[in-house]
């Protein structure tokens, strides 16, 4: 059974059909790229998985669990974590604090334990800092640990957001346009990084991306959406040859 299994996902906003019966699967340990011209519904799929949107129809099974039955804040506890197309970092906090929030769902100290600084709260704080240090080291962000996020350069912010997603130790990582706004050099580094996340930390990745170079370089499989429907799926090279895909991209002046 696949790690993530999406079946017949449909959603419409008023009269606009954003997704129309989309189905695909992501196998554990793979990197799946989700591409398509502007407005194809890529981010909508994302937002359905993370419960920002509630689809009209369909099912999303993660490790056999129906995600659509969970409230949005419990998605991360199921074992997924995400980044955002437009950064959603907590700008008035330091990098460390951002990553501690990233572990919010892993810890359980209640307000009283926190206020009285009870053993569980202190133990969790220590563990949280440890895990933060580990992931910051892995992403070579250790120098920024106590720096305010608001003052960081854009590319670093993106890596911090990645760190914040990874620190909860997800089994499925959802990356929403990670290359967006990065320079050519930074994208190269990103390609290595995405691979190493999968190879060294064993996380499965679902990637929404405009940047074809990145998608084709890292994805094991690619799913292509257009106008809310899946039009192709396969390995990067298969998809690149698919006439429907070529048609969709040629027809779309924006891509």
């Amino acid at each position: 059974m696949s790690l993530l299994q999406i079946d017949n996902l449909s959603i419409h906003f008023g009269g606009l059909v954003a997704l129309d019966g989309v189905s695909f699967e992501v196998e554990a340990g793979t990197i799946m790229g989700l591409i398509g011209p502007n407005g194809a519904g890529k981010t909508t799929v994302f937002n359905c998985i993370t419960r920002v949107y509630h689809p009209n129809e369909g099912s999303i099974q993660f490790e056999g669990q129906e995600l659509l039955r969970l409230p949005p804040h419990e998605i991360i506890r199921a074992g997924t974590a995400r980044t955002f197309q437009n950064l959603e970092l907590f700008s008035s906090m330091t990098v460390l604090e951002n990553l501690l929030v990233g572990q919010h769902s892993s810890f359980h100290a209640n307000p009283a334990e926190a206020a009285f600084s009870m053993p569980r709260s202190r133990a969790e704080e220590r563990l949280g800092v440890e895990r933060t240090n580990e992931i910051l080291n892995f992403l070579r962000l250790e120098d920024y640990r106590d720096v305010m996020v608001s003052g960081l350069p854009f590319g670093t912010k993106k890596r911090v957001e990645l760190a914040r997603a990874m620190v909860s130790r997800p089994r499925l990582l959802l990356l929403d346009e990670p290359a967006n706004g990065l320079s050519r050099g930074e994208v190269k580094v990103l390609i290595e990084l995405v691979r190493s996340l999968r190879d060294q930390l064993g996380v499965t990745i679902l990637l929404v991306e405009h940047h074809m170079g990145l998608v084709m370089a890292v994805s094991d499989r690619v799913t292509v959406l257009n106008f809310g429907r899946k039009i192709a799926e396969g390995t990067p090279s298969e998809v690149q040859r698919d006439p429907a895909v070529i048609e969709a991209y040629l027809g779309d002046t924006g891509a």
Partner: peptide
Amino acid sequence: SRIGRAFIALRDSEIGAQQMGVNV
């Protein structure tokens, strides 16, 4: 603590906080 940080997270980015597991 995690409680106080969740509050700030809510203030800074409600959707970010929610996706990090904070019950808004």
